[in-house]
């Protein structure tokens, strides 16, 4: 095995919550971009970025969809920042059983931010005209080859967790039969 260190590009979106005006343009363009066909529909509930927005308490937190998790956290902490109380979940990226965030509204399948693959920059950044979201890339060393998990696998795993492996296997068998 080679000892040469490998690097990978880390794409990151810097979120400045002081600048967020709570308009949710990020949610609008995200859901449009990921619609099938592209831009054919809009629905913030399907967006992979959501803004927790509580104007009266001055809470504005855009957060991106991360990984699917099977179980919710055992306890939930609270943070107090600049005198404002935030639930831990406000910053959490997980598509998790405790909430309906980052799930397809119809199927319940988990959603995950893909940084708008194929575009120059994530479209939420492009549509955020108050600069609460900015895009950065940086190189980072990695130890070992990463295993990529594709969308279909993530989706199937979620279904397995929800309905059990037997039922999903059953349905797949039925569908394959019908298709053949």
């Amino acid at each position: 095995m080679s000892t040469e260190k490998k690097t990978k590009t880390i794409k990151s979106i810097k979120i400045d919550i002081e600048k967020c005006n709570g308009c949710r343009a990020c949610e609008v363009i995200c859901s449009a971009f990921h619609a099938m066909p592209k831009y054919s529909s809009n629905n913030p509930a399907r967006s992979r970025i959501r803004v927790t927005r509580e104007p009266i308490r001055d809470v504005y937190v855009p957060v991106y969809a991360g990984d699917y998790v099977v179980a919710e956290c055992a306890g939930r902490d609270k943070y107090i920042i600049d005198g404002k109380e935030y639930d831990e979940c406000t910053f959490c990226r997980a598509s998790c059983p405790s909430r309906d965030l980052f799930k397809e509204p119809d199927s319940g399948l988990p959603l995950k931010c893909d940084m708008c693959e194929g575009e120059d920059e994530p479209l939420c950044v492009k549509w955020c005209r108050v600069d609460a979201l900015t895009y950065e890339e940086r190189e980072e060393e990695i130890g070992e080859e990463e295993v990529s998990v594709d969308e279909a696998e993530t989706g199937l795993e979620a279904l397995v967790n929800k309905h059990g492996i037997d039922k999903v296997a059953d349905i797949i068998a039925q569908i394959s039969k019908a298709k053949q």
Partner: peptide, 10 residues
């Protein structure tokens, strides 16, 4: 939580 569609997306 439903979709609003547009006729000519691009």
């Amino acid at each position: 939580t439903k979709d609003v569609n547009v006729a000519e997306p691009a």
